[in-house]
Amino acid sequence: MDHTADRAARILIVEDEPKLAALVGDYLHASGYAWYWVADGREAVPAVKAQHPDLVLLDLMLPGRDGLDICRELRSFSDVPIVMLTAKVEEIDRLLGLELGADDYICKPFSPREVVARIKAILRRARFPVEPGHTALKIDDEAHRASFNGTALDLTPVEFRLLKTLAAAPGRVFSRDRLLDNLYLDHRVVTDRTVDSHVKNLRRKLEQAAPGQDPIRSIYGVGYKLEID
Protein backbone atom coordinates (compact mmCIF):
# COMPACT_ATOMS: atom_id res chain seq x y z
CA MET A 1 0.00 0.00 0.00
CA ASP A 2 1.33 3.40 -0.97
CA HIS A 3 0.75 6.40 1.33
CA THR A 4 1.94 9.37 -0.67
CA ALA A 5 2.15 13.13 -0.48
CA ASP A 6 3.40 15.48 -3.18
CA ARG A 7 7.16 15.99 -3.07
CA ALA A 8 7.42 14.19 0.28
CA ALA A 9 10.44 12.00 0.83
CA ARG A 10 9.40 8.39 0.26
CA ILE A 11 10.22 5.76 2.88
CA LEU A 12 9.98 2.04 2.14
CA ILE A 13 9.21 -0.04 5.24
CA VAL A 14 10.19 -3.71 4.89
CA GLU A 15 8.64 -5.28 7.99
CA ASP A 16 6.56 -8.43 8.52
CA GLU A 17 4.69 -7.09 11.57
CA PRO A 18 1.73 -5.10 10.17
CA LYS A 19 0.96 -3.25 13.41
CA LEU A 20 4.56 -2.14 13.84
CA ALA A 21 4.80 -1.04 10.20
CA ALA A 22 1.56 0.93 10.53
CA LEU A 23 2.72 2.57 13.77
CA VAL A 24 6.00 3.71 12.24
CA GLY A 25 4.12 4.78 9.13
CA ASP A 26 1.77 6.96 11.18
CA TYR A 27 4.73 8.76 12.75
CA LEU A 28 6.35 9.18 9.33
CA HIS A 29 3.12 10.61 7.89
CA ALA A 30 2.80 13.03 10.82
CA SER A 31 6.35 14.22 10.07
CA GLY A 32 5.53 14.90 6.42
CA TYR A 33 6.95 11.75 4.83
CA ALA A 34 5.28 9.46 2.31
CA TRP A 35 5.60 5.76 3.04
CA TYR A 36 4.80 2.38 1.65
CA TRP A 37 5.19 -1.09 3.02
CA VAL A 38 6.09 -4.62 2.00
CA ALA A 39 5.98 -7.58 4.41
CA ASP A 40 7.85 -10.26 2.45
CA GLY A 41 11.62 -10.08 1.96
CA ARG A 42 11.27 -11.21 -1.65
CA GLU A 43 9.31 -8.05 -2.44
CA ALA A 44 11.92 -5.61 -1.10
CA VAL A 45 14.34 -5.36 -4.03
CA PRO A 46 11.59 -5.15 -6.69
CA ALA A 47 9.89 -2.44 -4.60
CA VAL A 48 13.11 -0.38 -4.46
CA LYS A 49 13.63 -0.75 -8.22
CA ALA A 50 10.05 0.19 -9.01
CA GLN A 51 9.43 2.97 -6.47
CA HIS A 52 12.92 4.51 -5.95
CA PRO A 53 12.47 5.36 -2.24
CA ASP A 54 14.57 7.99 -0.51
CA LEU A 55 15.27 5.62 2.40
CA VAL A 56 14.62 1.99 3.32
CA LEU A 57 13.67 0.77 6.81
CA LEU A 58 14.71 -2.87 6.58
CA ASP A 59 13.88 -5.54 9.15
CA LEU A 60 16.53 -8.21 9.65
CA MET A 61 14.26 -11.23 10.16
CA LEU A 62 11.79 -11.49 7.27
CA PRO A 63 9.79 -14.23 5.60
CA GLY A 64 11.01 -15.14 2.14
CA ARG A 65 14.43 -13.50 2.35
CA ASP A 66 16.89 -12.38 5.02
CA GLY A 67 17.37 -8.65 5.60
CA LEU A 68 21.17 -8.85 5.35
CA ASP A 69 20.90 -10.58 1.99
CA ILE A 70 18.53 -7.85 0.82
CA CYS A 71 20.94 -5.17 2.05
CA ARG A 72 23.80 -6.82 0.16
CA GLU A 73 21.83 -6.84 -3.12
CA LEU A 74 20.60 -3.26 -2.70
CA ARG A 75 24.18 -2.08 -2.28
CA SER A 76 25.12 -3.79 -5.54
CA PHE A 77 23.06 -1.28 -7.53
CA SER A 78 21.86 1.53 -5.22
CA ASP A 79 23.19 3.94 -2.60
CA VAL A 80 19.73 4.48 -1.06
CA PRO A 81 20.10 5.00 2.72
CA ILE A 82 19.27 1.82 4.66
CA VAL A 83 18.28 1.63 8.33
CA MET A 84 18.26 -1.91 9.73
CA LEU A 85 15.51 -2.83 12.23
CA THR A 86 16.02 -5.91 14.36
CA ALA A 87 15.46 -7.66 17.67
CA LYS A 88 18.87 -9.35 17.38
CA VAL A 89 21.42 -7.42 19.41
CA GLU A 90 24.55 -9.57 19.14
CA GLU A 91 27.59 -7.57 18.08
CA ILE A 92 28.30 -9.81 15.10
CA ASP A 93 24.93 -8.92 13.60
CA ARG A 94 25.56 -5.21 14.18
CA LEU A 95 28.93 -5.36 12.46
CA LEU A 96 27.73 -7.48 9.57
CA GLY A 97 24.73 -5.26 8.91
CA LEU A 98 26.78 -2.08 8.90
CA GLU A 99 29.65 -3.50 6.87
CA LEU A 100 27.23 -4.60 4.17
CA GLY A 101 26.39 -0.94 3.72
CA ALA A 102 23.60 -0.13 6.16
CA ASP A 103 23.60 3.51 7.24
CA ASP A 104 22.17 2.91 10.70
CA TYR A 105 20.96 0.13 12.97
CA ILE A 106 18.04 0.31 15.42
CA CYS A 107 17.23 -2.46 17.88
CA LYS A 108 13.69 -3.47 18.86
CA PRO A 109 11.87 -2.42 20.91
CA PHE A 110 12.36 1.14 19.76
CA SER A 111 10.58 4.47 19.93
CA PRO A 112 8.92 5.49 16.66
CA ARG A 113 10.02 9.04 17.45
CA GLU A 114 13.63 7.84 17.52
CA VAL A 115 13.19 6.16 14.13
CA VAL A 116 11.84 9.39 12.64
CA ALA A 117 14.69 11.40 14.18
CA ARG A 118 17.26 9.01 12.69
CA ILE A 119 15.57 9.20 9.30
CA LYS A 120 15.60 13.00 9.35
CA ALA A 121 19.32 13.05 10.17
CA ILE A 122 20.20 10.54 7.44
CA LEU A 123 18.13 12.27 4.76
CA ARG A 124 19.68 15.59 5.73
CA ARG A 125 23.13 14.12 5.16
CA ALA A 126 22.01 12.56 1.89
CA ARG A 127 20.72 15.90 0.57
CA PHE A 128 23.68 17.92 1.79
CA PRO A 129 26.67 15.56 1.51
CA VAL A 130 30.15 16.49 2.65
CA GLU A 131 32.01 17.64 -0.46
CA PRO A 132 35.68 18.55 -0.87
CA GLY A 133 36.00 22.32 -0.94
CA HIS A 134 32.57 22.86 0.62
CA THR A 135 33.21 21.79 4.19
CA ALA A 136 35.35 22.55 7.21
CA LEU A 137 37.24 19.32 6.53
CA LYS A 138 39.50 19.22 3.48
CA ILE A 139 41.62 16.27 2.41
CA ASP A 140 44.28 16.44 -0.30
CA ASP A 141 45.04 12.80 -1.08
CA GLU A 142 47.87 13.43 -3.53
CA ALA A 143 49.71 15.80 -1.21
CA HIS A 144 48.80 13.66 1.81
CA ARG A 145 47.54 16.76 3.66
CA ALA A 146 44.37 17.53 5.58
CA SER A 147 42.93 20.61 7.26
CA PHE A 148 40.01 21.27 9.57
CA ASN A 149 38.40 24.71 9.85
CA GLY A 150 41.28 26.10 7.82
CA THR A 151 43.96 24.74 10.16
CA ALA A 152 46.46 22.22 8.81
CA LEU A 153 46.45 18.91 10.65
CA ASP A 154 49.77 17.34 11.59
CA LEU A 155 48.79 13.71 11.02
CA THR A 156 50.78 10.50 10.97
CA PRO A 157 50.27 8.28 7.89
CA VAL A 158 47.96 6.02 9.89
CA GLU A 159 45.92 8.95 11.20
CA PHE A 160 45.62 10.34 7.69
CA ARG A 161 44.29 7.01 6.39
CA LEU A 162 41.89 6.81 9.34
CA LEU A 163 40.49 10.27 8.63
CA LYS A 164 40.30 9.59 4.90
CA THR A 165 38.37 6.35 5.50
CA LEU A 166 35.84 7.99 7.83
CA ALA A 167 35.45 11.03 5.56
CA ALA A 168 34.77 8.84 2.52
CA ALA A 169 31.33 8.03 3.94
CA PRO A 170 30.21 10.67 6.47
CA GLY A 171 27.59 9.31 8.84
CA ARG A 172 28.34 5.67 8.07
CA VAL A 173 29.53 3.52 10.96
CA PHE A 174 32.81 1.66 10.48
CA SER A 175 33.69 -1.28 12.71
CA ARG A 176 37.17 -1.43 14.22
CA ASP A 177 38.02 -4.40 12.00
CA ARG A 178 36.93 -2.49 8.90
CA LEU A 179 39.06 0.49 9.89
CA LEU A 180 42.08 -1.72 10.62
CA ASP A 181 41.88 -3.08 7.08
CA ASN A 182 42.53 0.46 5.83
CA LEU A 183 45.11 1.64 8.37
CA TYR A 184 48.11 -0.63 7.85
CA LEU A 185 49.33 -1.19 4.31
CA ASP A 186 51.57 -4.07 5.42
CA HIS A 187 48.56 -5.88 6.98
CA ARG A 188 50.38 -6.33 10.28
CA VAL A 189 48.58 -8.14 13.07
CA VAL A 190 47.34 -5.69 15.71
CA THR A 191 44.45 -5.65 18.14
CA ASP A 192 41.25 -3.80 17.33
CA ARG A 193 41.87 -1.57 20.35
CA THR A 194 44.72 -0.06 18.37
CA VAL A 195 42.03 1.81 16.45
CA ASP A 196 40.81 3.39 19.70
CA SER A 197 44.28 4.81 20.30
CA HIS A 198 44.50 6.28 16.80
CA VAL A 199 41.00 7.74 17.10
CA LYS A 200 41.94 9.35 20.41
CA ASN A 201 44.99 11.00 18.82
CA LEU A 202 43.02 12.10 15.76
CA ARG A 203 40.29 13.59 17.96
CA ARG A 204 42.89 15.53 19.92
CA LYS A 205 44.31 17.06 16.74
CA LEU A 206 40.85 17.93 15.40
CA GLU A 207 40.03 19.56 18.74
CA GLN A 208 43.22 21.63 18.55
CA ALA A 209 42.21 22.82 15.08
CA ALA A 210 38.59 23.55 16.05
CA PRO A 211 38.11 23.84 19.82
CA GLY A 212 34.76 22.51 20.99
CA GLN A 213 34.17 20.39 17.90
CA ASP A 214 34.37 16.59 17.93
CA PRO A 215 33.15 15.23 14.58
CA ILE A 216 34.07 11.61 15.39
CA ARG A 217 31.28 9.72 17.12
CA SER A 218 31.79 6.47 19.04
CA ILE A 219 29.04 3.88 18.55
CA TYR A 220 29.19 1.56 21.54
CA GLY A 221 29.98 -2.04 20.59
CA VAL A 222 30.19 -1.20 16.90
CA GLY A 223 32.84 1.36 15.92
CA TYR A 224 33.12 4.96 14.76
CA LYS A 225 31.61 7.40 12.31
CA LEU A 226 32.35 10.96 11.16
CA GLU A 227 29.64 13.60 11.46
CA ILE A 228 30.14 17.07 9.99
CA ASP A 229 27.22 19.50 9.78
Rank of each mutant, 00 (worst) to 15 (best):
I92L: 09
A126C: 08
H3I: 13
G212D: 07
V116I: 09
R178T: 09
V56W: 05
D186N: 06
H3F: 14
F148S: 02
P63D: 02
E15D: 00
S197I: 15
R193Q: 15
E159H: 01
P211Q: 01
S31C: 06
Y220V: 15
L95C: 08
Y220T: 15
E90D: 15
G67A: 09
K88I: 15
L155E: 04
Q213R: 14
G67C: 11
Y220L: 11
P81D: 01
V38N: 07
R172T: 11
K120Y: 01
G25W: 05
T4M: 10
G32E: 07
D93F: 15
G221V: 01
G101W: 10
E99A: 03
F128S: 15
L153P: 03
P46L: 05
A143Y: 06
H187W: 08
Q208L: 13
D93Q: 11
R127K: 14
K164P: 03
D186V: 07
K225T: 15
P129D: 00
S147K: 08
A34C: 03
P170S: 09
F128L: 12
G171M: 00
R188G: 07
L55I: 00
P129R: 06
S147I: 00
A143W: 10
K108L: 00
Y27S: 04
S76E: 14
K164I: 00
V116H: 06
G67V: 05
R178I: 05
A209H: 07
V195Q: 04
H144P: 04
A102E: 01
D186C: 00
T191N: 13
A50M: 12
H134K: 14
T194G: 13
T156S: 12
D214Y: 12
V222C: 14
Y33C: 03
V199Q: 03
